[in-house]
Design a protein around this nucleic acid. Sequence first.
RNA 1: AGGGCUAUAGCCAAGCGGUAAGGCAUCGGAUUUUGAUUCCGUGACUCGCAGGUUCGAAUCCUGCUAGCCCUGCCA
Length: 549
Amino acid sequence: MTEENNYTHFIKQIVEKDMESGAYDTIVTRFPPEPNGYLHIGHAKSIVLNFELADEFGGKTNLRFDDTNPLKEDKEYVESIKRDIEWLGYDPEAVRFASDYFDEMYNQAVSLIKRGLAYVEDLSQEEVRKLRGTLTEPGKESPSRERSVEENLDLFERMKNGEFGDGEKTLRARIDMSSPNMNLRDPVLYRISHTEHHNTGNKWCIYPMYSFAHPLEDAIEGVTHSLCTLEFEDQRPLYDWVIANAELDAEPKQIEFARLNLTNTVMSKRKLKQLVDENYVDGWDDPRMPTISGLRRRGFTPESIKQFCREIGVSKADNLVDVRMLEHFLREDLKLEAPRTMAVLDPIKVIITNYPEDGLEWLPADINPENESMGMREIPFSREIYIEREDFMEDPPKKYFRLFPDNEVRIKHAYFIHCHDYKKDENGQITELYCTYDPETKSGSGFTGRKVKGTLHYVEASQAVPAEFRLYDSLIDDEAEGDNFLDFVNGESLTVKHGFVEPNMKDVKANDKFQFFRHGYFSVDPEEATDEKLVFNRIVELKSSFKLK
RNA sequence: AGGGCUAUAGCCAAGCGGUAAGGCAUCGGAUUUUGAUUCCGUGACUCGCAGGUUCGAAUCCUGCUAGCCCUGCCA
């Protein structure tokens, strides 16, 4: 069971009341994705809500694939969705499919027909649309509406038996063509589609619509609280109509909440698909994607995503959450977990002119100063080291306390070094720095004679391990201008750097996470890192109050 | 405009008639061998607007305004 938590929201309050009043003995929720795409962080909000709410009240949560439209769905998505939920750390009480209940749904439809609550429509889609009316004008009743029960029964059975082509007929609920709620103007319950289904194969050529299928699925599974997003609010009367008229005992209630929107992010399946199809990214699991698989590959931890979902709350107000909140929880989670190590992403060589020609020493370094139990490692130091190119300036501005001519800085875990000279190539690019070190300032020696303003990270040259670093920036630039979201795609969302890491990083494994000193949190790319080639994805930068310029 | 819903700080969000929680972000300051972390401090004379009820209103009532959703045989 989940420990008690401090988060409350209107849905939890509804459940609390329902439990107190005895309306339900136990709570059952479900996460009901359609297997037609990959899960993203917006789904994570729903997953966390459903699983943790049920868990908190000692209830259960099913994973149920809403596979009522074989035209769009595929097994491939079923597997990726299962994997993502498991990775997040949730274990469904049961894994079900809407298609498991096709027989039951068919019987319920027949029952509605027998009671005069549904009829077979043979008007074309176009004609049905015309009769539906508009937002401000009531619809008109279809001639099919007054067909006899016997005829309806016969036609529906023939629909099932494949006697009609796609779109030739539908089964409609007989509700109210003049309802101000469009969903109640005799909504379609079943349509004909001669399409093979990933689960039921060619058994069916009629498939139930969401509005009919979903409440039945909930009722069959004994779901008590059926949570969905705001756009289904207008469907609730229809949901309730189905529940009231179905011959099932359970009485699930639908409750709607606002979906998640994130700054610098697009969330709709359509847009994400476009980014993939038009090669703005490398696939659904590109580390820049807000998909669960993208976040996982980028290096986000399940806990950081879950904590984010808990903290943003649940309400009915449209919202746009700052991505920096997500990043905050990643840093928070990794702070005590990720080993510190040093990586130079854009190297510049430093020659320590007064260090012995063939000297090499191993220095002790803590693995995580905030978590001493992680122990120590040893890192080499010698006459030649690499530091970050941006840690040296010929002509620094005020308050630049890194290295510049005639300045002294600390090299992390090693010594103070003092810059005396530097060399440039024909393009004016700095190629080498010449420094001296002061043996008295060795780290751990307790030296207090002088203070320096800056501490730089480094990698010793002879032992340095080459590595590739992939630095990610927002995929979407919220400040950009344009009519189409593609105008907002950041063309510089990926920067690749080649540099060095410490020798003890040779044996890292896929998805290992580190804090590169002064840079941020990085994760070993699971797809493209090999034994010969280290590839690190930057998950998120460290915060910084330093602003050059 | 017919219906449904929403409105509390830059963002998310608690609050449920007794006098505005918390988080993120921002900006200060202290500590610091990460310009990080940590720590401390920082913002709503007011809750979309206008009226009303009440000793007392973000909370109740009325009327406005703004935004989102609904006319798939998608979910």
